[in-house]
Design a protein around this nucleic acid. Structure first.
Length: 272
DNA sequence: ATGGCCATCGCGGATGGA
């Protein structure tokens, strides 16, 4: 099973690139962030014509997420249950897996399939801003909800644009970024909190090229100079850890004309 | 050249992104 996450920075602009990418990378599931579309404008027909089932959750101008999958997702959830939030940031669903269905039969009570949670974490803007306070509140709610989801879905993947650079090696200039948004101890503490819940950063299970980023600023020739951050992540639950075959960042779409500022992150899991 | 953005809304320029 291959899954991917991609912040497309407007699906209206990037839909052709998404369809091209899926043709070249026929993953089983893809979560998108920053679709920036109201639900009535979502390109359902184009995505279904490409062979994908799709769930979406958007709003005007900002945010917006989607879950594309070869097989239809079940138990779809939009945003964090119990959190009052007018921003469309989360879409979750369960993807079927033949292998885990067998496992579930042998392990009654565990849900079959793979729980996929696609999330667009708040940016936070600046550590002294109201938006940062919102980011912390959102992260608290996410952590509590993920705990609950884990109790019901042993096979869980939390992937998306975290807007957190977990370590200094995830930042092209950690001195300049020290204490700045994406790099504050509070944000990194929340990332560690997710790891302490039993999730694993799939990217770091493998040797990776040094200076691996998932986002490059549009300004300052940042991509050409490879000045970026690794802020898009794929975390997997402990039962999936031993099944992760690979995880990489696909820089190729960042070289497109009119690219998103983010690149897709892809994971391969040994599941049918 | 040593600095250079992009999308939205809406039609100029503010806002947000990261």
């Amino acid at each position: 099973m291959k899954l991917a996450t991609w912040n497309v920075n407007s699906l209206a602009v990037r839909l052709p690139q998404v369809l091209d990418w899926l043709q070249a990378n026929p993953v089983d599931g893809l979560v998108l962030q920053e679709t920036k579309l109201t639900d009535d404008k979502f390109p359902q027909a184009e995505i279904e014509a490409a062979g994908y089932a799709v769930q979406w959750f958007g709003q005007k101008t900002y945010n917006g997420v989607a879950l594309l999958s070869r097989q239809a997702a079940s138990e779809v959830v939009k945003n964090i249950p119990g959190l009052v939030d007018d921003q469309a940031r989360v879409i979750a669903g369960t993807l079927p897996s033949a292998l885990t269905a067998e496992g579930a039969a042998a392990d009654a009570g565990n849900g079959a399939g793979v729980r996929v949670i696609g999330a667009y974490f708040p940016n936070g803007q600046a550590p002294d801003s109201d938006k940062f306070v919102y980011k912390m509140r959102w992260l608290d709610a996410l952590q509590a909800w993920v705990q609950d989801e884990l109790s019901r879905h042993p096979n869980l993947v939390l992937l998306g644009d975290y807007n957190i650079a977990p370590e200094d090696r995830d930042v092209y200039d950690p001195v300049a970024w020290a204490g700045q948004i994406h790099c504050t101890p509070q944000e990194r503490g929340h990332f560690q909190g997710l790891l302490q819940q039993g999730l694993v950063d799939a990217f770091r299970l493998f040797d990776q090229p040094p200076r691996s980023w998932s986002w490059w600023d549009y300004r300052n020739l940042a991509f050409r100079k490879n000045q970026g951050l690794r802020i898009d992540h794929i975390l997997v639950s402990e039962p999936l850890r031993a099944r992760v075959l690979g995880c990489h960042i696909d820089k190729l779409p960042r070289k497109n004309e009119r690219p998103s500022d983010h690149a897709p992150v892809v994971i391969e899991i040994a599941l049918a």
